[in-house]
Design a protein around this nucleic acid. Structure first.
Lengths: 214, 214
DNA sequence: AGATGTGAAATTCTTCACAGCG
DNA sequence: CGCTGTGAAGAATTTCACATCT
């Protein structure tokens, strides 16, 4: 119940810190200062320190933060104890792009199965992920513990897909369909709305070009 | 200069309102109340009224907001006067998915050209969009007025791509690569980080399942 | 009665600024 | 010194609550 202890923006930044810390570690560094971590993102050093404080980690004023230790602590926060199972529904262009994306990087969160209405995708192995017909979704979910569902189906099918995933026990949805999903309040929905992102970008392109400079 | 008059979250909601209003209009409705528009999103009626107030529109207490009028006003805010040109760089899985996505819907913001390093994509027409070799990007940008660039290349190539787009006059980037782009301060960057979104979703899946319910 | 428009309060998030430490 | 940890201030957003109109 106290997992509301971390504000949403902090969680997002933790994901980003982790990426940077991993890269630093791989590059042979052992320690970082808050200002270095801040510079790699678009955040202030104070923000970094506050986030680190929130997750109950601490560094040393003389040497900064221990990268490996901080990574571990972030992992403790972000990574579910038993791992979350993730399934993808919708193996169209976007679904395939997502599979390629997650297969490419040694993702900490692998997609364990994909589902689609198209009969020809059934049985295929796409970017290392097994594909099944959507009719098999329910029974699959009942057999495996899956906490996250990715909705990459057309808008018209999104609500129905969400319903099936939730009925199957999924607790959170990553939704790429341009509709507001109607879900119970105990289900989290993260919307990735590409059309909105593009419109927003276009708006700011316009307003940026009106500014004097900088 | 005074386009900083609209806060970022409001712009995002305006995009969503527009989508819903269009659907309502298409369904034959002429007017909406703030609580109806609010219910379609996950926002409060007060939020809707505040947003509408910010863009200088007003409805009538007795009939609510005129859908067509509100749509026009939102369009005046969001849509650049001369239209923004948009180019896509990176025609891999994700790039193709984006082209399909924007081709499918009668998008208000069409992608006018796509670029990739792979020679075999050059000259192709993918989902209605002409593809060129990346080497042609600069000269293309110098010939057309393009304000927005979509970065859908691998992480390693993202910074270089951003640089070329910006040198070509682009004022805003929609970045799908999992890196923080280093850009001048007069260039807006909207990051869509799918890996972060998934990690965040996984985190909340975990914390949701710990809550009592609702 | 039920909706809008809007000051003012509340909340959430970010930044400041400085004590304290090695 | 320069950096961390953090209370306190500040900014940005959201929500409340109510006057007002029809």
């Amino acid at each position: 119940m106290k997992n509301v202890e971390f504000p949403d923006p902090t969680i997002e930044r933790l994901c980003c810190y982790r990426r940077i810390l991993s890269a630093l570690l791989a590059a042979g560094h052992a320690r970082v200062y808050s200002h270095e971590l801040a510079a790699a993102q678009r955040v202030t050093p104070a923000q970094v320190r506050r986030d680190v404080m929130l997750i109950g980690y601490s560094g040393s004023p003389v040497k900064g933060y221990d990268i490996a230790g901080l990574l571990d602590r972030i992992g403790e926060i972000l990574d579910p104890p038993g791992g979350v199972g993730v399934v993808l529904v919708g193996v169209g262009y976007l679904g395939r792009a997502l599979l390629a994306y997650f297969a490419g990087r040694k993702s900490p969160i692998p997609v364990v199965a994909a589902f689609d209405v198209a009969p020809e995708t059934s049985g295929q192995l796409i970017h290392g992920c097994h594909c099944y017909h959507i009719d098999e979704l329910s029974s699959f979910l009942s057999r495996r513990s899956i906490l996250v569902g990715i909705v990459a189906v057309p808008a018209e099918a999104a609500q129905k897909t969400a319903r099936e995933l939730i009925d199957g026990g999924v607790r959170a949805l990553l939704n790429f369909a341009p509709v507001q999903l109607d879900v119970p309040q105990n289900v989290y929905v993260e919307n990735v709305d590409i059309a909105v992102s593009l419109e927003k970008t276009a708006f700011f392109a316009q307003s940026m070009s009106l500014e004097k400079e900088d």
